[in-house]
């Protein structure tokens, strides 16, 4: 499947999806660390199921007077085999590409084109675990994953799937300048700002990220650009971060009447 070379994509762990409605959106692709944790969770769950059955078998055996009969050993082995080969596929079909472990880590299996997982593909990708696991501990799978831009292991490549992150995010908060700009402060700025759209956008992005930065880092970042803008506007730069906030306030005030 030739990837369309429309334009250069930034080097990033996201996959772009175009839906039948021609909506494009981006999924972050799940890296090995997250997937290993999900696998460990699933492994523990499978182990727990087996232990529960073993306890039942033991209690049943004790009731009959036999510590643990061969019959229950046979049954346990069959359950073990069912868990080994069908656990993932059953969950992925029931939960639309998720197992309990994947759900806990907000992972989902989708096709490389972003379509939902199909049964046959789920079966294939999980059978191929036998190859990814070799020689032990998913060594081959991890090496293959590390070499692929979408972190696909062999099973994903055969089945045409990838694992994406669907972590819930918070909606961006509204921008507040604290304390609000006074008319005196604003009057020191020119009516028409000599700044490009990109520069204004960069300032807005900085102001939105401000609360996540430490005060020192905030000052450091603001001090990189504020003097340039100040000299362009011919004003004195006293407080870099404050100046950027004022520029943003002026820009959005100019935009509003339109």
């Amino acid at each position: 499947m030739a990837e369309p070379a429309r334009r250069l994509q930034p080097i990033d762990t996201t996959a772009e999806i175009e839906t039948p409605e021609h909506v494009r959106f981006h999924y972050p692709v799940a890296g090995p660390a997250r997937r290993v944790v999900a696998w460990v969770l699933d492994w523990l769950i499978r182990g727990a199921i087996l232990v529960v059955f073993a306890i039942f078998a033991l209690m049943g055996g004790l009731a009959v007077g036999d510590a643990i009969s061969d019959l229950s050993v046979g049954l346990l082995l069959v359950i073990h085999f069912l868990l080994e080969w069908t656990y993932y596929t059953l969950w992925e079909i029931a939960w639309n590409g998720r197992t309990p472990g994947k759900r806990a880590l907000d992972l989902r299996v989708v096709s490389v084109h972003g379509h939902p997982l199909r049964i046959g593909d789920s079966f294939l990708r999980n059978l191929l675990r036998a190859a990814d696991f070799l020689p032990l501990g998913y060594a081959i799978g991890l090496v293959v994953m590390a070499r692929d831009g979408r972190f696909r292991r062999l099973g994903d490549m055969v089945a045409g799937t990838m694992v994406i992150v669907e972590e819930r995010r918070a909606v961006a908060t509204t921008l507040r300048i604290d304390p609000p700009p006074t008319p005196k402060e604003l009057s020191s700025l020119p009516q028409r700002l000599p700044l490009s759209g990109d520069e204004l956008e960069a300032i807005e992005l900085f102001l939105r990220r401000k609360n996540g930065l430490g005060p020192a880092r905030e000052e450091e970042l603001a001090a990189m650009v504020a003097p340039i803008f100040a000299s362009r506007m011919g004003i004195r730069n006293k407080d870099s971060a404050r100046l950027l906030a004022l520029i943003h306030a002026r820009a959005s005030e100019r935009r509003r009447p339109l």
Binding site: F25, I93, N96, R108, H115, P116, I119, E166
Partner: peptide, 12 residues
């Protein structure tokens, strides 16, 4: 959009 897409187009 991704989550809504997954929910709308559920697995086969």
């Amino acid at each position: 959009a991704g989550r809504a897409h997954s929910a709308l187009y559920g697995a086969e």
